[in-house]
Design a protein around this nucleic acid. Sequence first.
DNA 1: TCTGGGGTCCTAGGACCC
DNA 2: TCTGGGGTCCTAGGACCC
Length: 421
Amino acid sequence: MIGLADCNNFFVSCERVFRPALLDRPVMVLSNNDGCVVALSNEAKALGFKRGNPYFKIREQAEANGVVVFSGNHRLYEDMSGRVMTILRSFCDEIEVYSVDEAFIFVNDTVGDFGDFGRELVRTVRRDTGIPLSLGFASTKTLAKLASRFAKKYPGYRGVCVIDSPEKARKAMALTAIEDVWGVGRRNAPKLRRQGVTTALQLADMTEDRVMEIFDIVGVRMWKELNGISCISREIVPPQRKTIRCSCSFQDEIFELETLRTAIASYATSVGKRLRRQGVVAETIEVFVATNRFSSCRPQYFNAFELRLDDPTADTALLVAAAQKALDRVFRPGYGYKKAGVTATRCVAADSVVHSLFSDSGDIERRRRLMAALDRINASPANRHALHVASMGPGLVGLTRREHESRLYTTRLDEIIEVKV
DNA sequence: TCTGGGGTCCTAGGACCC
DNA sequence: TCTGGGGTCCTAGGACCC
């Protein structure tokens, strides 16, 4: 049996842990730049708000309905996620962290009744972190996903739904709309509906050849999973990242190259830090800039340039310098830039790199130690940017909007929760 | 005024090799 | 006049996920 643990309305739940008065209130969390709605409480969903709504379009209606709004506080969510995962790990043989709010869990049969085991797990996570969890058990990942949806949707399950027979699987699939199947996306759902396939069960009952005709190999895999044949493997050890990107929309359009440079330096810095944390180096680095794609009256421009580094690296100074070079290749004066980003493409394990014949190995080692020192100094949340490249300037401060920011309750001592008694 | 960010996988087609 | 067969690698674009 495979379990899927899924935190309910995760970002909203994180905010509620520290603002318990919001437990039955409509709450929303916004994307970067306070742009779109990315998470909603059930109360906010009931009011008709949806994930992806541009905030400026619904702002008035949200205020009129007393919706409490937060700018995304992802450092808080990451920390809360870690706490949840720690508990899952303590209960299970192995877990596969699938996203910030989801993990596949693997337990052996000695746990006895999966329902009892699951409810104990849900209770513990709720008690120790404040986060509500939905848990689904089934024979494949796709069916476990489906089970967790039931656990979330129907309170009668008390957080845990177990699919442990073909009959239960068929019943659950008959009640699941085709677009709710993991792997059937926005594009394929209408295609299937046109073929008369409207439920997961109808998809499962097709022949393999027919699935291959409509879909492709990906569809066949999904079809097998629905029929109880497991073909999506466990990934207990997180696979090495192949690309690492940092990009961000700006509050106002940016016209000056020098302002873009500070943003690009910030992104490259953040990419470098993440490369080092994952023990990888980048062979190439890509920079893109884009105008506001929603503006129909202004001239549009998008461009990206990928630059091969002399030597694969995770060195912030080298990445920043390379990113600036790439920026020079794509920047055109006269446009108002709304978005830009830096991607480390072609990442490879740092210890497997073959350096160029002409590179100075002593210098590489010195720079590696320099970065290690920089990371140590910047490690504490209070010193995050204590040591940084000068071209970052003030970084992204002032370039992006965050009007509803909550505190870093769990990682900064001067922002911890205050209790009045 | 105001519209997110970060990933993966698969496929078709072109370049190139012998 | 006649113009092969069999491979690999890479990339861009499209689909999906959270």
